[in-house]
C-alpha cells in the first residue's frame, strides 16, 4: 500500500519551519503581555506570562506523571481476555 509520493511534512526542513513558527508565536504572546490590562481576578493571573508558564509546566507534568502511572496501571493488551 505504500506510495513513494513525497508529502510536505516528509521534509524535515518543513517540520523545522513549523517548530520555529510555534516558538515565534509563543515569544509574540509573551511580548503581548506588556501591552494590555489583564484585569485579573486572582493576583497570580496578573503575573507576567502566567498562562504561558503555567501551561508549559502543567503540560509536562501531565505527560510525565502519566508516564510514571503506566508502571502501575499498564497491563497486556488482552489482560481481560475478551
Amino acid at each position: 500500500m505504500n506510495d513513494d509520493k513525497k508529502y510536505w511534512l516528509d521534509d524535515a526542513a518543513n517540520v523545522r519551519k513549523i517548530i520555529i513558527g510555534v516558538v515565534v508565536i509563543c515569544a509574540g504572546l509573551l511580548a503581548a503581555d506588556f501591552f494590555y490590562d489583564k484585569h485579573a481576578t486572582f493576583s497570580i493571573e496578573g503575573w507576567y506570562g502566567f498562562y504561558g508558564i503555567y501551561g508549559f509546566i502543567v503540560f509536562c507534568a501531565i505527560v510525565l506523571i502519566g508516564k510514571e502511572l503506566r508502571k502501575i496501571l499498564m497491563r497486556d493488551e488482552d489482560y481481560y481476555d475478551e
Partner: peptide
C-alpha cells in the same frame, strides 16, 4: 476580550511548545 484571547492562546501555544520539547 484582549485578556481572554491572549491568555488562552498563551496557555495553548505553550502547551504545543511543551509537546514539541517532550
Amino acid at each position: 476580550t484582549t485578556a481572554h484571547v491572549i491568555t488562552q492562546l498563551q496557555l495553548l501555544m505553550f502547551s504545543v511548545l511543551a509537546f514539541i520539547v517532550l
